[in-house]
Amino acid sequence: MKELDLLKKDWQRSENSFEQVSADAIYQMIHKKSSSVVKWILIVSILEFVLLNGLSFFLNSKEYDAFVLAHPIIKTIEIINYVVIFGFIVLFFRNYRLISTLTSAKELIKQILTTRKVVKFYILWNIVFGGLTGTYTAIEGFNEGQKAANSQAELLDSENILVILIFALIIMGLIWCFYKLIYGSFLSRLSKNYTELKKIDL
């Protein structure tokens, strides 16, 4: 077949007409899994936000509503929390966008470090914020209960600071476990990929 021979000739002539992909770009392609980890961090953080808030929406009780009404500061804190968490989700999204369009191993390393940092701050925020509001709510709740019962017992104050501290620590510990469970494997996968990349990047 004459045309086929012609094609073959042209095919072999065009052998060197392709834009060559650099070694660096190849490294990056085979380390693409970082971008999928970052994608999952984004997805999970959004799911967590939606599910936890959905849960508290359905579990709302009249007592709690009344309690919030009496303590407007809780409402304020909640709004601040929403804003901050929304900010984190935006950051996660930005990380995801950046990491999937990177062109060099060096930039990928940098981006992995940033992502890890953001996730750690996110967890820290949740622990501190959750611990503080949890403790505050517990103290106020206790005091209110005492007042309502007209009890002679002491209201919670500085004397019971040890109790409060232990209480706060327990709450924070629980939150820490929760996040460790969710994001721990993401973080370790990221750091594994990071050490591999670090070895390549000379």
């Binding site: 992909v21 190849i26 490294y27």
Partner: peptide, 10 residues
């Protein structure tokens, strides 16, 4: 791998 792939990328 990267070296061989780069050489054979065409």
């Amino acid at each position: 791998f990267v070296q061989q792939l780069q050489e054979n990328q065409n």
